[in-house]
């Protein structure tokens, strides 16, 4: 992993600095997570009455199910869609807010607020907007002669959950892109302007490279978000339907484990999902981070 060229020398200090964080995650994450992982090799009922070692059965069951492969594909489509849409929208909005002089505060506030809508209400809101029967946007689409039925049309259902998930994350990306943009020294951009570079060229050749540390951070975080933090939206909007079209991996983990109480299978699925995402993330650190422009 990339580190600083200039470093301080100390043995104890870095460990001391890390200690609070590590202690918290040891007790409140690794301890319980370890027990959850243990369950992946067992068959158990939720109340702890029955407990049986089953080896890899929870895993083989998964890989023998055709629906699981559909779910993998849905996850790939969903995650890339969410990451692309939320990063793109966040960057465009941040770049324009950074560019203008008037009304910055107003735009900023309006983009950030949706992030503060309690998630328990957000799902309900999406239905009030997009449900084909009673959603107001669905009505508008119907008036405009556009057939809208995510209840049965798989692609529309996918588009809907991608939008809902991206919507929740746009504010987040916007905040960090804007912070990144505002940290770029004005002098650098002015120098380029004096050299005759137009606004778009300046943005592409100077601003964007300087923004790569933020972009890299957001890319990783958004993918992790799409992979792990979106089951609530799926649950509220589509329940994984129609016909399993939006049944992404983490929703299956949630539905089987939290709702369905099949702890063994849910834990096995979590491990598979974790392996996939850790691999993806390590690859990003290995290959993508080389292109990141640090100081």
């Amino acid at each position: 992993m990339i580190g600083k060229k200039v470093v301080f020398r100390s043995r104890g200090l870095p460990l001391l600095l890390l200690a609070p964080q590590l202690l918290v995650i040891l007790v409140f994450f690794f301890w319980p997570a370890g027990q959850a992982v243990f369950q992946a090799f067992h068959l158990a009922d939720p109340f702890g009455q029955h407990f049986e070692y089953v080896g890899l059965e929870n895993f083989t069951r998964l890989f023998n199910s055709p629906e699981y492969y559909d779910s993998l594909w849905a996850t790939a489509v969903f995650s890339s869609g969410v990451a692309f849409l939320s990063l793109g929208a966040g960057l465009v909005l941040a770049a324009f807010v950074d560019h203008i002089r008037r009304g910055r505060m107003v735009y900023k506030s309006l983009v950030i607020w949706p992030y503060a809508v309690a998630p328990v209400l957000a799902g309900v809101l999406w239905l009030f907007l997009f449900h084909p029967i009673y959603g107001v946007v669905a009505f508008a689409l119907e008036r405009a002669g556009i057939g809208w039925n995510p209840l049965l049309d798989s692609n529309q259902a996918m588009a809907l959950v991608v939008m809902a998930a991206a919507w929740k994350q746009v504010s987040y990306n916007f905040v960090f892109f804007l912070a990144g943009l505002q940290a770029i020294p004005r002098s650098v951009i002015e120098a380029a302007a004096i050299d005759g570079a137009g606004p778009l060229r300046r943005f592409l050749t100077i601003v964007l490279p300087l923004l790569t540390p933020t972009t890299f951070f957001l890319l990783v975080i958004n993918l992790v978000y799409a992979f792990f933090d979106t089951f609530g939206i799926i649950h509220a909007v589509t329940h994984g339907g129609p016909g399993g079209a939006t049944n992404i991996l983490v929703y299956k983990v949630f539905a089987d484990g939290f709702i369905g109480q099949d702890l063994g299978s849910s834990a096995a699925q979590s491990i598979v999902l974790m392996v996939i995402v850790v691999t993806l993330t390590v690859m990003q650190f290995r290959f993508l981070e080389r292109k990141v422009h640090y100081a």
């Binding site: 992993m1 100390s10 995650i25 959850a36 949630f254 484990g257 850790v278």
Partner: peptide, 28 residues
């Protein structure tokens, strides 16, 4: 600590922190 020092398990410490994003509370 992770950026300004070199010490054993530096990368491991970072990843240990990072994977906490990957197991939702609902599952554990």
């Amino acid at each position: 600590a992770i950026t300004y020092f070199r010490f054993p398990f530096r990368t491991a410490a970072f990843w240990a922190i990072f994977v906490t994003l990957m197991l939702p509370i609902e599952v554990r």
